[in-house]
Simulated assay, not measured.
Amino acid sequence: MAEPTIIDIAHSLGREEAKRRMESRVGKLASHIPGGAATVTSSWPSADRMALTVSTMGVEVPCTIDAEDRRLRVTLHLSGILSLVAGPIAAVVRQQGERLMLDDRSTTQA
């Protein structure tokens, strides 16, 4: 198995607000995954860690998101051919993570 891909997303929200946004927005993740047929399951194995499994096109990608005071640390476990395109996947995760987690406009627009 390939080494995990780690993506850090800086923020100035504080740990508790970051966790609140993670919890309130996890349901939107599937709609941001290319391919259109993704499912996302989530759980909280500890107070500051969300575990996710993203399933799309017959592939499951387990990942964790650790909420810290000044960053979110996303760890993806890419297997097989996906590990060969870890760079572009990480770029999409970073972009969508910033958009979903840090952009308050997503909660204030009608």
Rank of each mutant, 00 (worst) to 15 (best):
T5Q: 03
L52T: 13
R99T: 15
G14P: 02
S55Y: 02
A67E: 03
R73S: 09
H32D: 05
T39W: 02
R21E: 00
R105D: 05
T107K: 04
T75N: 00
S83R: 09
S12T: 15
T56H: 07
R25G: 13
G14F: 07
T75E: 09
A86Y: 04
D103L: 10
L82H: 10
R94N: 06
D8C: 06
R94A: 06
M50A: 15
I6G: 00
L102A: 05
L78H: 04
L84P: 00
I33E: 02
S24F: 09
R15C: 08
H11N: 12
E17I: 13
L76G: 02
P4K: 13
A30C: 00
Q109D: 12
A38P: 05
W44S: 13
A51K: 10
I89R: 08
G80A: 11
T53L: 06
I6T: 07
L72E: 02
L76I: 12
G14S: 01
T5N: 06
S12I: 14
T56C: 02
Q96H: 11
A90Q: 07
P88Y: 08
R71H: 00
P34N: 13
S106Q: 14
P45V: 11
R49H: 05
S42C: 11
P88Q: 09
L52S: 03
G80Q: 06
R49D: 09
L52P: 05
R21D: 00
Q95S: 13
S24W: 08
P88G: 08
T108D: 03
M101S: 04
G80S: 05
Q96M: 15
A51E: 09
G97M: 09
Q109N: 14
D69G: 00
